[in-house]
């Protein structure tokens, strides 16, 4: 079985200063993995690189067998829409359209045919069936995050990438969100990679990679 994420010697810098140094990352289908590191170690930069939003200065990166660096900008965007689900700490939903339409927009940009029943089924699984036609500004923060999880999974992506999903939550809620992420990604057959500085999550992930701050150049 091919690796979902195969990253080697990824280096990236901003303004001549190194911002990220990742020697190796390997993730297989169905795996849940934690990428832990202090602030300033380039976690978010790595997440952007893995999502194809940013091209690393050097290194090799294959996602679901595809050499991401070989894709053009528009092809990378489409690839992201089809294979990668993204979840953020606060940034959740498109405010102009309702919950169901948020999911169906993800189908559109994931180049999938509109599938309303699939979207509704997913919302139902996450306990949001009754909120399908609610506008985002009427949702609680927790509901909005669950909708974002549903939206990230609606295209059955190979990988679910979560950027600091728990850092602003108390222990109970953090635990709940992680359980939800693990359950939902497992059910949808997506590998889960959580990128965080939240040490509490260590207990929930058997597999973890520690990311260190790159040495600044002299």
């Amino acid at each position: 079985m091919p690796a979902l994420i195969e990253a080697q010697d990824i280096r990236h810098g901003f303004g001549g200063q190194p911002a990220l140094a990742l020697d190796h990352l390997h993730l297989e289908a169905g795996q849940a993995h934690l990428l832990l590191g202090p602030s300033g170690c380039g976690k978010t930069t790595l997440l952007h690189i893995l999502a194809g939003l940013l091209m690393p200065d050097s290194g090799s990166l294959h996602i679901a067998g595809q050499d991401v660096r070989a894709l053009g900008p528009a092809a990378r965007d489409r690839f992201r829409g089809q294979h990668i689900g993204l979840i953020f700490q606060r940034l959740h939903l498109l405010g102009a359209v309702n919950v169901l339409q948020n999911l169906m927009l993800a189908q559109h940009f994931g180049r999938r045919p509109p599938n309303r029943s699939r979207a509704l089924a997913l919302l139902d699984q996450l306990g949001l069936a009754h909120r399908a036609h609610a506008m985002p500004d009427t949702l609680s923060q927790g509901e909005a995050q669950r909708v974002a999880i549903a939206r990230a999974l609606v295209n059955q992506p190979a990988i679910l990438l979560a950027d600091e999903p728990t850092s602003s939550l108390d222990d109970d809620n953090a635990q709940e969100v992680i359980a939800l992420l693990r359950d939902a990604s497992e059910r949808e057959g997506a590998a889960l990679l959580v990128v965080t500085h939240d040490q509490r999550l260590r207990a929930h992930f058997p597999d973890a990679t520690l990311l260190a701050r790159p040495e600044p150049t002299a």
């Binding site: 999502a51 900008p73 965007d77 489409r78 992201r80 940034l91 993800a106």
Partner: peptide
């Protein structure tokens, strides 16, 4: 967010 969902520039 649109870009994250797969929208091109």
């Amino acid at each position: 967010l649109l870009r994250c969902l797969g929208a091109t520039r």
